[in-house]
Design a protein around this nucleic acid. Structure first.
Lengths: 197, 197, 197, 197
DNA sequence: AATGAATGAGTGTTCATTCAT
DNA sequence: TATGAATGAACACTCATTCAT
């Protein structure tokens, strides 16, 4: 799938991203994509198997790079669990802010055969959060009977905030509020500890 | 748009709901809808202006009835803020569980002209939650600097849990976890108060 | 075909006439006709076999009544051939002027099965003119090697004048010019006769 | 709209001409046109905006070329006014005889937006005749108080003759009869002149 | 007789995909 | 490799006609 001029490939992806983010799948015409990418319509089929493949590649590429980046950052140095969580939340928000269409892309329903790939990526992202929480529990910094589900909540909340939050919500505010909610919910209740200590 | 046999209208909506929930907009054929509803294809156009109108009506009707139901329940009797919040969360989950396709419908991107209507409904739902939190703050049962955003978080989290949560997640578990996370995050920190007292 | 309330029948015809005159056959909807006639759509099918039948009846009725009227007028009293011709031309023009859509109707192509009926009526009309000319020739008031074709010319010319003539052309002007052209062309050349006498 | 292989465009027009001449607009299916032209149905939409556009192009092209040809022939050399008139009539008849469907096409009612274009062409054709008559009057070869209307008459008569004339009418007979009628009607009455000389 | 809701065959048009150049 | 003209399967939507009331 990765033939020839990778430059041209990303031209196409860039053009497609804007269009797919702006309208539903069936309203995006490959003619437009080709025009916006300044290439011939046939050329798309050299780099992508089909319209669907183009669409899925778009999302797959974006999420993959996000996951890789987060994994790198997490591995870099030691942090408290809350710091790690903040790192992930900030990564999600900044990623979405930098590629304002990414989340819009995810609104769309995917053709069934692709759901597998996408949910795999989503699961990887959730797993990243879940593992941070699990480590937090192991370190007795956090408590959470359902870390996986909490991962879904965090992902969904950031998405909800980005897509539907107040107009003038800044990235930092979104990060802060997410941390305030989930940070406090996950925090091992201090008073109890204090009581026992 | 509410002509004639409202029974037939429901038949169509019911058939459409199953189909739109199962596949993306452009993969649903009106022939199928007509067949599933046991009516002629042309009949759809008596009750709905277009395929798009059918689709939007589906979502609009569902969300409206949810909002109305929640408003009624909230008004019925006095409750603590947490009980009110639980009422809403339970309402969301039960609604989604009863109409398993509703949330799937909302995944799809809508044609732009409809976004307005939909985001209005979403805002109403969020406002319901926000007002519960505000009242909680006024009653000194809760604290939250961004009740509106928290509303978005709750909505998004329930949705995320329904759509992507663990296979065997029960409705009650989802309600409990949502309340655990958001309930504890919003609770006016007891230990601090105790400290001061 | 002539059932029941003949009043209702002509309501339908009247409504249909305006519509068929205003747009091509396939752009006229029976819904419109029914609405304009203030009757139910199904009622049309009580008075007419089909849309096509309605359309053809419209034209047939109009032309038949024109032919009958002209025949009556011609038979009423003795006239010179030119007076007879003028009678017909005036009849054509006045008929068209009184039912301004009639000629527009005739612009439209008819479904083949109807062509027979229509061309029969046209031929009757042409025959009327042809016979006037023939009688004129017999009376040595006219000369014309092709009276039938001349009949077609006259019919066509009046139609052309009505449909495409100058905006402010009056009925009388059209009659006069038609008579000027065809009257002089058909007139037995006076000078020659005089020469020989 | 004049893209690509103009050969293919002609193929389509040729196929369409036969079909539109044989039946009313709404009975001609684009599937037939494509089949007759030996091209894919979609190809029609590369060369024409719509069924309507195809139809109008057909007529527009034909009439334009007729007008151009007549203008050229008239300019070629000096002629008496009657010769010029005969040239036009012969041109009309031969044109129609060579493209036996052209006049049939014109029977149909056009969608309103196109009427403008068509009546423009008709007016050009009429203007051609009118100017010949006017020149004839200036040269004292002809007399006619309404040259424009006479132009309409001639056009209409030729059309009437072609469409509805006797079965076995030849092109030459039609030309001759048209000239006999209109030639004699327009001729500056010789006897009067002779009287005065 | 009159109605108008229901029907579904029929068709213009689109657009992802192909392939000759 | 790159192209864009050609394709034709696919589909939303229409509307003449029917028929239960």
């Amino acid at each position: 799938m990765q033939k020839l001029d990778p430059n041209k490939r990303s031209e196409i992806l860039k053009a497609a991203e804007r269009l797919f983010a702006a309208k539903p799948f069936h309203e995006v015409k490959l003619d437009e994509v080709a025009a916006k990418a300044h290439i011939g319509k046939g050329t798309i089929y050299i780099y992508f198997k089909s319209k669907e493949d183009l669409y899925v590649s778009l999302i797959r590429d974006g999420m993959s790079s996000l996951i890789v980046r987060l994994q790198e950052q997490l591995g870099r140095k030691r942090r408290t669990s809350e710091e790690e969580l903040r790192l992930i939340v900030a990564g999600l928000v900044q990623f979405a802010a930098a590629r304002p269409n990414m989340y819009h892309l995810l609104r769309t329903v995917l053709p069934k055969p692709c759901e597998g790939q996408m949910s795999l990526l989503r699961r990887q992202l959730v797993a990243l959060i879940r593992d941070v929480i699990r480590r937090g529990i192991a370190r007795r910094e956090m408590q959470d009977p359902q870390p996986e589900l909490t991962g879904q909540f965090i992902l969904a909340s950031v998405r909800g905030g980005m897509l539907f939050g107040p107009e003038k919500l800044t990235a930092d505010e979104l990060i802060e509020h997410t941390m305030k909610i989930f940070g406090s919910a996950l925090k091992r209740a201090a008073c109890h500890k204090e009581k026992h200590s």
